[in-house]
Design a protein around this nucleic acid. Structure first.
Lengths: 209, 209, 209, 209
DNA sequence: GATGAATGAGGATTCATTCAT
DNA sequence: AATGAATGAATCCTCATTCAT
């Protein structure tokens, strides 16, 4: 796992080598997955010899997990600060806006998650336990506090919550699809606004009466 | 005897062994992606020497594409037969039911697609041109014929259509997530029914007044 | 694949398919050597499945040796019929003309020999014992009967004979060189005549006073 | 110490290991050709793992070309320094002596060239353009300045030059033949002297009146 | 005779990782 | 911290050969 030093860098000194490695690895892992990326390529993108990677991370696997760890911290914090008082449409709307804004700043994250979910690998357990489950439970409580929810059967709740997750994350994970099918740039400012509005409307319709 | 022969042909069309290779490759590629699976492993699962794979497919890449080709044929046919007359909720509902039933019979497919979309590789272009685009256009027409659509701004249409795709495919591609977060078996008959109902309700809410 | 009729045509009745295999193998072995040619490629050039080769030759090595055996028979016979009475320039000249004519009909042969010589493999021993040695000895006797020979020291005799061999065979084995360096086609009728004349003059100068 | 360093540099220019790899590869390629030698074997002869080869050369093909490049440099330089003033028999004789001496120090070279010529591969073009052509042109000029040349028709010139090349290189490329046919050791000091004398006499007879 | 399919061995090359410098 | 070099294991793929049909 990353040295304590390296882990602390991102917040304080963003110029550190470990951070640059994490940046490159994040982009590459998101683009082609764990097995699709070689240590040499990550090193190459940072301008390092492949051996140097091991001065900062003990293994490729550890680097991969460090990427996910770093990516998930802020999102978990963001949600932890809002887990309560989500009953009103306005609060929901604000959370969504913040979430989307955050994802727009870390667009690799949804891809990494989606890959991890598809792989169903070991790390998914840790991911679920430490990050996704809290978020899921918070979302569940918030949804349950929604007035119009009565129309959804109890057993549909998980599907409903994951459905909203798909609407939110899918835009990023499937950006290539939107680009090719609709001929638009999924990452243009215009689409950013459109996506935000769409998710707002969609959740309104799904949750409200 | 001629009858029996004739009957057997379609199933053994590409040779029994080739089909078994395709089956094994489909499952493995869906589970761990193209780079995550070795030819040796595919061969092993079929009980073959790895060299034998090359008697049936010229390369790993060709095998991969054959898997996708085979998987997408039926789905394209299914949608081609319904591309018209989707204006009514009943027609939509029937198509959804058939789609979900088909996906339930080929649960690897959504994973393969999602991996291909994440990779954004060369093959995605062919996939888009031949299969996804027609489906997308058909869906677009159907959605445009929906009365309640007025509430969606024109530029949200692609997002809306892809959103429904995510609701539908996400259940399969992210089954591991549902399993871990909600503690349910995404592939139980019970969840199958629940998913169908959920998608119906969700599309109703998204599309109708 | 070719009909039996077509197969029998080339050499009237020289074994049909086996002959066509030998033809293809001869050309390929001459062009790229034993290790540079695969059984599949030989079979492909004949329009056969690679397994069919083994109906005619027990192994790739055996096929290779059969190629050499077939190629050397006529040349040995040619020389055996002339091994005596080579003392006069006219006789020498006639032999050279016949030799060159024969090589021009089997231009792969010098390349095969040169490759075998470079490899210094097992088969070279058989080649030497059965074919090259008799030729060499005949040439030695003929040369020794030459009047002008007195000017060559005894120990230069092997070098002299091999030198003439190089002048003769080198044209074919190094055709690619002549083509690239002099910009001429080594296999044009014009060069054929020129080569014959050159070898005649050269041997004259080397052997005569 | 600085002196010693400086002295050692040329020999270790491309790294001691790289040189040892080149040495082993040169011997093996000369003996059995490009396709006849495996990277593993080259590595084994140097006492390396086969993967280590790739720390010094990007591919087997690149290693092969490096071998030829290295082998040809000195010979080209040797000839470049003599390209002029070759009109006299004495100058010719001295060049021949130097050439033969050089070949005796790099006896693999003629074999490598002959193999490359037989293959007629891509690299032969580079070989011709950069090395053989200059040599050929120099030889042509030198030969044209020879008095006795009048007896050769103009179109025989390329054959004459290549003929002398065959006499010179053939001794090395076909050493196995001389050994087996004449029962002598082509690389004995005695044969070395004999070969030099033979080439001198032969060129005299071919070029002079 | 011909062939599709099977296979063990080996081909070149890349992998993640280690270590001395 | 950085790196060139080394390596065992694994990668995809081709090899010559066999065998049932």
């Amino acid at each position: 796992m990353p040295t304590e030093e390296a882990v602390r860098v991102p917040a304080a000194e963003s110029g550190g080598t470990a951070t640059r490695i994490l940046d490159a690895a994040e982009a590459l892992f998101a683009e082609r997955g764990f097995t699709g990326v070689s240590v040499r390529e990550i090193a190459g993108r940072v301008g390092l010899n492949q051996a140097s990677i091991y001065n900062h991370f003990p293994s490729k696997q550890a680097l991969y997990e460090a990427v996910l760890d770093r990516g998930f911290g802020p999102m978990r914090d963001l949600l932890a600060a809002r887990a309560h008082g989500l009953g009103t449409p306005e609060a929901r709307e604000r959370l969504l806006a913040d979430l989307i804004e955050h994802l727009w700043r870390t667009p690799h994250l949804p891809k990494l998650v989606q890959r991890e979910v598809l792989d169903g690998g070991e790390y998914l357990d840790k991911l679920t336990e430490h990050w996704l489950k809290p978020i899921y439970e918070a979302a569940k409580k918030a949804v349950q506090a929604t007035p119009g929810l009565a129309r959804w059967p109890e057993e549909d709740l998980p599907l409903l919550i994951l459905g909203m997750y798909h609407l939110l994350f899918g835009h990023f994970a499937s950006a290539a699809l939107l680009e090719r099918l609709a001929g638009v740039d999924p990452f243009s400012p215009r689409m950013r606004q459109a996506h935000l509005e769409f998710v707002k409307h969609a959740t309104d319709r799904l949750l409200e009466r």
